[in-house]
Amino acid sequence: MSAPRPLRPTLLAPAYWPEVRRGTERVIRLLADGLRDAGHRPRLVTGHPGARRAVAEEDGLEVVRLPRPPAVRAAVSRGRIDEHAAHLPGVVAELVRDPGDVLHALYPTDAVAAALARRAHRLRGRRVPLVVSNMGPPDRRWARERRGRTTGLVTVARRADAVTTLSAFARDRVRAELAVDSLVVAPPVDLDAFAPPADDVRHAAPTILFASAPESDAKRLPLLLEAVALLRDRDPAVRLVAQAPRDPAARRALDAQPGVATVDLDDHAALREAYGRAWVTALPSRDEAFGLVVAESLACGTPAVACAGEGPAEIVVDDGVGRIAAAATPQALADALCGALRLAGEAGVRACCRAAVRDLGVDAHAARWLALYERLLADAAR
């Protein structure tokens, strides 16, 4: 019997490394790793600030970078169109020429481009499956702010072969706000890259890590700073290590706060070291679909703290791996952090934390996607 034909899924996102390094870009890289290791040939079609189409093979992922022409960028700005739409004319042409086996869009406007290309193939008699992944918990207000978002999130999603979200929290939000049903596919964690330190040593002082974008209002760093100040009133040794803001003045202002130090965590090795040495990782964000930093922290054996009613609360499943703040207030967050700091010193906590995310590994994640892709391809062939 011949071996199964390698699949060639086409992933679609508005930007990629090194231009942008957010959770979505990390998920793309890990999904590509899992697909590659399983013998498949993923491709990413994305935008870039360059003047020409560029193609590169990056660790088994074919990356097609399409330009954002100045005239299109100007039209986007004038027309209240989503800022990530400037490369989309090139995306449609690229996908009409070569859609791969499955179209998998990870942003609403990319979903619109994929739907246009899929329609062209359907007119030629070919059915190309389309998957739309919501990488956050979008709501109707956000969707209406820019043209293209509602179309991608609602019109295209309802016609797609599958829609996915990152958590039950995100699934319920999308259903309530947009009347779109979805499957939950949690993002992957690189359990090889993120692991407890070999020497099992944490910082001498009680250290809280904030490994998210400090510029994002949704991450609620000011709330965390207030909570840390309350903790330091009880124990002045408590310190906060935070991802450095990109703006130098903002970084200096953060470093000037008592007990606070900023570090550059863009490098995987530095991030792993920070997780492993910290006592607790804090993510007090709102509208958080999943919270990859929480899962990565647990993989490194470090407890985590998040707020109730958000996606990360589905990862911090019990008091053996962290704490959930009952409310988004400085006192409630300080109380949760205090409990997690005590937990960090207990025997066996690293093993408990890591066990909580063992099902989120890259291979298992890729296998879930392959099963979905293959089901959709079988349906399209009928």
Results as ranks from 00 to 15, higher is better:
Met1Thr: 13
Leu7Pro: 02
Arg8Lys: 10
Ala13Ser: 07
Ala15Tyr: 11
Trp17Phe: 11
Trp17Asn: 02
Pro18Val: 01
Pro18Lys: 13
Glu19Gln: 15
Ala32Lys: 12
Gly34Phe: 03
Arg41His: 13
Pro42Tyr: 14
Arg53Leu: 09
Glu57Ala: 14
Glu62Gln: 08
Val63Ile: 11
Val63Glu: 07
Leu66Gln: 11
Pro67Glu: 03
Arg68Gln: 12
Pro69Gln: 01
Pro69Ser: 07
Pro70Gly: 04
Ser77His: 13
Ile81Asp: 00
Ala85Val: 06
Leu88Phe: 09
Leu95Arg: 11
Asp101Tyr: 06
Pro108Ser: 09
Arg118Leu: 12
Arg124Cys: 03
Gly125Glu: 11
Pro129Gln: 06
Leu130Ala: 05
Asp139Glu: 11
Arg141Gly: 00
Arg144Phe: 05
Arg146Ile: 01
Arg146Gly: 01
Thr150Gly: 05
Gly152Val: 07
Gly152Phe: 09
Val156Ile: 03
Val156Ala: 02
Asp161Arg: 01
Ala162Asp: 01
Leu166Met: 14
Ala168Leu: 06
Val174Ile: 15
Pro187Ala: 03
Asp190Thr: 14
Pro197Thr: 07
Val201Asp: 05
His203Asp: 15
Phe210Val: 10
Phe210Gly: 02
Pro214Asn: 09
Ser216Met: 12
Lys219Pro: 08
Leu223Glu: 04
Leu231Ile: 02
Asp233Thr: 15
Ala237Tyr: 00
Ala237Lys: 04
Val238Gln: 02
Leu240Val: 09
Ala244Ser: 04
Ala244Gln: 08
Pro245Thr: 08
Arg246Ser: 01
Pro248Arg: 05
Ala250Glu: 12
Leu254Lys: 02
Asp255Arg: 05
Val263Cys: 06
Asp266Thr: 12
Ala269Cys: 01
Ala269Gln: 11
Ala270Thr: 14
Leu271Ala: 11
Arg277Leu: 10
Ser285Val: 04
Leu292His: 03
Cys300Pro: 10
Gly301Ile: 10
Pro312Asp: 15
Ile315Pro: 09
Val317Gly: 14
Asp318Leu: 06
Gly320Lys: 08
Ala327Val: 04
Ala328Pro: 15
Gln331Thr: 13
Ala334Cys: 08
Asp335Lys: 02
Ala344Thr: 06
Cys352Phe: 00
Cys352Thr: 11
Val357Trp: 02
Leu372His: 07
Leu372Phe: 08
Glu374Ile: 00
Leu376Lys: 08
Leu377Asp: 00
Ala378Leu: 14
Ala378Gln: 15
Asp379Leu: 12
Arg382His: 13
